[in-house]
Amino acid sequence: DHWEIRVGDITIHLKDVDEEIIRWVEEALRNGDDLEEIKRWVEEVLR
């Protein structure tokens, strides 16, 4: 699977990601969370 999350001008590409993570990231972006923080979290989860 390949996911693209778009929020404003930001697009995040994710592969082999659980839908729950996608929802979490979308929510975090909508809440204005720091992008670097989100990326770190996702990388942590995917490890």
Rank of each mutant, 00 (worst) to 15 (best):
D1W: 14
D1L: 15
H2K: 09
W3K: 02
W3N: 03
W3C: 04
W3A: 02
W3G: 03
W3L: 04
W3Q: 02
E4R: 08
E4D: 04
E4C: 14
E4F: 14
E4S: 08
E4I: 15
E4V: 15
I5Q: 01
I5W: 10
I5R: 02
I5G: 01
R6Q: 04
R6I: 07
R6Y: 02
V7Y: 08
V7P: 01
V7D: 02
V7Q: 04
V7W: 10
V7H: 09
G8M: 06
G8H: 06
G8K: 03
D9T: 05
D9S: 11
D9W: 10
D9R: 05
D9H: 07
I10H: 08
I10F: 14
I10V: 09
T11A: 09
T11I: 08
T11Q: 05
I12V: 10
I12Y: 15
I12N: 01
H13T: 13
H13R: 12
H13G: 05
H13S: 10
H13F: 14
L14A: 04
L14N: 01
L14M: 07
L14K: 03
K15G: 06
K15T: 10
D16M: 11
D16E: 07
D16A: 11
V17G: 05
V17I: 07
V17W: 07
V17R: 07
V17D: 03
D18F: 15
D18N: 13
D18W: 15
D18T: 13
E19K: 11
E20R: 14
E20Y: 15
E20N: 12
E20F: 15
E20D: 07
I21M: 08
I21Q: 02
I21S: 02
I22S: 04
I22T: 05
I22Q: 07
I22N: 01
I22W: 14
R23P: 01
R23V: 05
W24F: 06
W24G: 02
W24D: 01
W24Y: 09
V25W: 02
V25K: 00
E26A: 15
A28P: 00
A28H: 10
A28Q: 07
L29P: 00
L29W: 08
L29D: 00
L29T: 02
L29G: 00
R30K: 09
R30G: 05
N31T: 06
N31R: 15
N31F: 07
N31H: 10
N31I: 04
G32E: 05
G32L: 09
G32T: 08
G32Y: 09
G32A: 07
G32D: 04
G32Q: 07
D33C: 14
D33M: 14
D33W: 15
D33P: 10
D33V: 15
D33K: 14
D34K: 08
D34I: 14
D34V: 12
D34P: 11
D34G: 07
L35F: 09
L35Y: 09
L35Q: 06
L35N: 04
E36A: 07
E36Q: 08
E36L: 08
E36G: 06
E36N: 08
E37V: 10
E37Y: 15
E37H: 11
E37M: 13
E37T: 12
E37W: 14
E37I: 08
E37N: 10
I38V: 07
I38D: 00
I38G: 00
K39A: 06
K39C: 05
R40Q: 05
R40M: 03
R40C: 00
R40P: 00
W41V: 09
W41E: 01
V42S: 00
V42T: 01
V42N: 00
V42P: 00
V42Y: 06
E43L: 15
E43F: 15
E43A: 14
E43W: 15
E44F: 13
E44D: 08
E44Y: 13
E44C: 14
E44K: 13
V45C: 04
V45D: 01
L46R: 02
L46K: 02
L46H: 01
L46W: 06
L46S: 01
L46N: 01
L46A: 03
